[in-house]
């Protein structure tokens, strides 16, 4: 049967992997290619790389890094950050990425989703989004509002309307990164993930808040998420991929062993 995917996320700043809490207080963890190889060897199902300073610095994604990753791991990986045009998408895909992730670009220019999907195939185009619990229920009746810059700017866009629109435009996958849960290691935002995953017919990746294997079991049993993004719990060495997969399997989640 199709297994649930476990996807380590590597946030890249100044060519190094970093990790923050609620998008702040980043610390340096290591070299992206070395860490990618380690997680690949350990049996992760996919990887995602966010070049988190590319947009702020007004430069495209670090293509040399994408090429170096592609030459060393033979599983799918997605890249995001610094994707500002179809040309940027093409460069990343030709460098060997399986998928490109757009977030703030899609907010300012939603048609990029359809253009990318048509040019490269829907399976390549991932929508990343950073929803937060909102009191702005007039504009956001689902209770969740899309933010930019990891929760620092509010958009007034309803999270549920946004994913339905993205699906209509031809997106291939949706990463739901809860701003409230990010970096807390207290578990995923289950209601949010459930709501999104029940209302779209593309794969949904739960992100933010995963601190132990039980949190993954919770999100896979409570929602229809297809995959989960993990970061801090493995970057710190508290858990290994092998251990997570063994625990998930023992708890009845179908994973690739």
């Amino acid at each position: 049967m199709l297994t649930k995917r476990i996807i380590p996320c590597l946030d890249i700043r100044d060519k190094k992997v970093t990790k923050g809490v609620k998008f702040k207080n980043n610390v340096i963890l290591g070299d992206p290619v070395e860490m990618a190889i380690k997680y690949y060897e350990a049996g992760c199902d996919e990887l995602v790389f966010y070049d988190i300073t590319a947009s702020a610095e007004g430069r495209p994604i670090d293509i040399d890094m994408v090429k170096a990753v592609a030459a060393n791991i033979y599983i799918p990986f997605a890249v995001g950050g610094g994707i500002s045009s179809l040309k940027d998408m093409e460069m990343a895909l030709l460098a060997g990425a399986e998928k490109v992730s757009v977030n703030s670009l899609a907010i300012s220019n939603p048609s990029i989703i359809g253009e990318g999907s048509k040019a490269f195939g829907a399976q390549c185009i991932v929508l990343g989004m950073d929803p937060i619990k909102t009191k702005n229920l007039g504009k956001c009746p689902s209770g969740y509002e899309i933010t930019r810059r990891g929760g620092r700017e509010f958009t007034g866009i309803d999270a549920l309307e946004w994913v339905k629109r993205a699906e209509d435009l031809g997106v291939g996958e949706i990463v739901v990164n809860s701003v409230d849960a990010d970096g807390t290691r207290q578990g995923c935002e289950l209601e949010l993930t459930k709501m999104i995953s029940e209302n779209v017919n593309v794969p949904v990746v739960a992100s933010g808040g995963v601190g132990c294997s039980q949190h993954m079991v919770d999100v896979f049993t409570y929602s229809h998420a297809d995959a989960v993004i993990i970061a801090g719990m493995i970057h710190t060495g508290d858990y290994t991929i092998e251990q997570i997969k063994a625990e998930l399997s023992a708890m009845g989640v179908a994973v690739r062993l």
Partner: peptide, 16 residues
């Protein structure tokens, strides 16, 4: 044949 939300089409991921 898609049967969302349990079974999505395309199949995307690792299968045996």
């Amino acid at each position: 044949k898609a049967a969302p939300p349990e079974t999505k089409v395309p199949q995307m991921g690792w299968n045996s």
